[in-house]
């Protein structure tokens, strides 16, 4: 599998104490991406399924103590659904549950469905609430996300929705209302709608990679603002 990096302690990507694997390659080009180095396979390293499983299992004592598991993120982990499915099954046999952190911007093939069903939970990004905005800021398609969300809720796979809030782009209650309209039909299958603050920690990477950073002049979202919007978002979904 093509891997960007491993992070043995990822406390905030899913429930409990987690091991995160960042897979290389992504179909999207989000303006606020903080991992532009995962877009292509250029900087990726090839690992076998067994090699990855071995690394993860070395952290089993922590994951068990911390009621966690492994989170596959990226890039877009579902780009490598075939191998990912095998890896998840292997880990499952060893008692380690998996969480998929996806943009949802992949066609819902049988393999993708297999991965989702074998996972304990899914972190699904809802990046923008209309096709136009979605394409404008990510170069992706919203309908793929809603299709996946529909599949996840129908199959009772625990799903957390995540939205990055960027100052001046979507940091208003009006913007959140539009998101809520997309989510409403699937409300009962969504365990949480989490707003993530835009931060500038990935800026260096743009410079290093020589990629133009479209949000160079945007500052990080203040924590008070995020909290205020989170309360509003919770009220919208009555969560």
């Amino acid at each position: 599998m093509r891997i960007h990096s491993f992070e043995s302690l990822a406390a905030r990507d899913g429930d409990g104490l987690r091991y995160a694997v960042f897979l290389a390659g992504c179909p999207l080009r989000c303006v606020y991406c903080h991992n532009p180095d995962t877009w292509t396979h250029e900087r990726a390293q090839e690992y076998t399924i067994e090699q990855i499983a071995k690394k993860i299992l070395r952290c089993k004592p922590y994951m068990l103590a911390g009621h966690g598991g492994v989170t596959f993120s990226g890039g877009e982990p579902l780009f490598q659904a075939d191998e990912l499915y095998q890896l998840i099954c292997l880990l499952k046999q060893e008692g380690i549950g998996s969480c998929i952190d996806t943009s949802g911007n992949v066609p819902l093939t049988q393999k993708v469905k297999d991965v989702l069903e074998a996972s304990e939970s899914v972190l699904l990004d809802l990046k923008f609430p209309t096709e136009e905005a979605y394409y404008q800021h990510t170069k992706g398609k919203l309908f793929l996300v809603t299709e996946m969300l529909s599949y996840l809720t129908q199959n009772n796979i625990p799903t957390r929705i995540r939205t990055v809030i960027v100052p001046q782009l979507n940091d208003s209650t009006e913007a959140l209302l539009a998101y809520a309209r997309v989510l409403m039909p699937f409300k009962d299958g969504i365990s949480q709608w989490e707003l993530l603050p835009f931060h500038t920690l990935g800026f260096e990477k743009y410079e290093l990679l020589g990629i133009e950073n479209p949000l160079l002049n945007t500052s990080a979202l203040p924590d008070e603002k995020r909290l205020e919007l989170q309360v509003f978002a919770n009220s919208l979904l009555q969560k």
């Binding site: 406390a11 922590y62 103590a65």
Partner: peptide, 26 residues
């Protein structure tokens, strides 16, 4: 470790730290 990397609030951080200690010492 930075507070943000360990958990979302002090309660969560304490729980995760217990898991780190248990896993390390085991």
């Amino acid at each position: 470790i930075t507070p943000d990397a360990l958990g979302c609030d002090d309660d969560d951080r304490s729980e995760k730290l217990v898991a780190v200690l248990d896993g390390y010492f085991s």
